[in-house]
Design a protein around this nucleic acid. Structure first.
Lengths: 140, 140
DNA sequence: ATAATTGCTCTAGTCACTAGAGGTTCAAGC
DNA sequence: GCTTGAACCTCTAGTGACTAGAGCAATTAT
């Protein structure tokens, strides 16, 4: 439990910005670390790992809520993995759905570009398509 | 140019909520419509189409900035389509990239689920993977 | 004519940060 | 040991794109 990192070093290690680290502490996502006699934060490796976990999960698009759940679960090392698995699976489903929606959108966008128009905005299919949801083949 | 819709009717027609319509007016995304003698907003079909355009483009994930550009361009009916095309093409590229990133993420998530663990969080690969970016095959 | 609904403006709240002011502490060089 | 400059501290306020609520006025239906 050595007190190794200043907040700046922690930021450099994890890629999370200094004010964001303080913000995370403020909202209770990470614990308040011990301080030096001069009131500066000092973090240990455990804190660093926890912040890496957070940074990575955020980068993967996990919402803040899921993060809190995951952190809570990850704290109970003897607990069953099922809950954690469920969160990951939910996220996986979300990702699948977003891929599907984006793929549909992709089709729409490229159809817009392909439909030849007469060179002026007035006759342009892009405007038309964007104004009229009915002409889309898919939902979004 | 008949004055047909109250703000509530416009909301019902377009799917954009009433306060959001007022917000759009406030930030100058749509024009301030004429008012009744009692100071209520009355919209015509042109305004409705414009709002539909906005709603649809937003639903397709166009950022607010692109929206403003598109609206500006769409207003000049005699202008060439090239600028509008460029916006759509940019968006298409963005969508392609997001699909690629999500697909990579999908792989990571399902790999997490597949790697068999021993039933407790302590040995769980999910925690490990989330803590350690190095073990990822891709960037996010 | 009255009641219910819808509308009006204005302020403030949300989330996840980010920026800045104004002041203190730490680490390095001399 | 002292000084300098970078990094740290707290606090307030701002961001974008809305959303919620208060308190009041207008419209619409009965």
């Amino acid at each position: 439990m050595q007190l190794d990192f200043s907040i700046g070093e922690l930021a450099a290690e994890t890629g999370v910005k200094v004010p964001t680290i303080r913000y995370y502490e403020g909202i209770g996502l990470i614990d308040a670390p011990p301080r030096t006699s001069g009131n500066q934060r000092r973090y240990d490796r455990t804190a660093r790992d926890r912040l890496k976990f957070i940074a990575h999960a955020r980068a993967m698009g996990f919402p803040m809520d899921s993060l809190r759940s995951m952190l809570r679960i990850a704290g109970h090392k003897e607990a069953p993995c099922a809950d954690l698995d469920r969160l990951v699976r939910e996220r996986l489903d979300e990702v699948d759905e977003r891929i599907a929606r984006l793929t549909a959108l992709r089709g729409e966008l490229s159809a817009m570009l392909e439909s030849r128009h007469h060179g002026t905005v007035g006759e342009c299919r892009v405007v038309e398509v964007l104004s009229d949801h009915e002409c889309c083949s898919t939902e979004h």
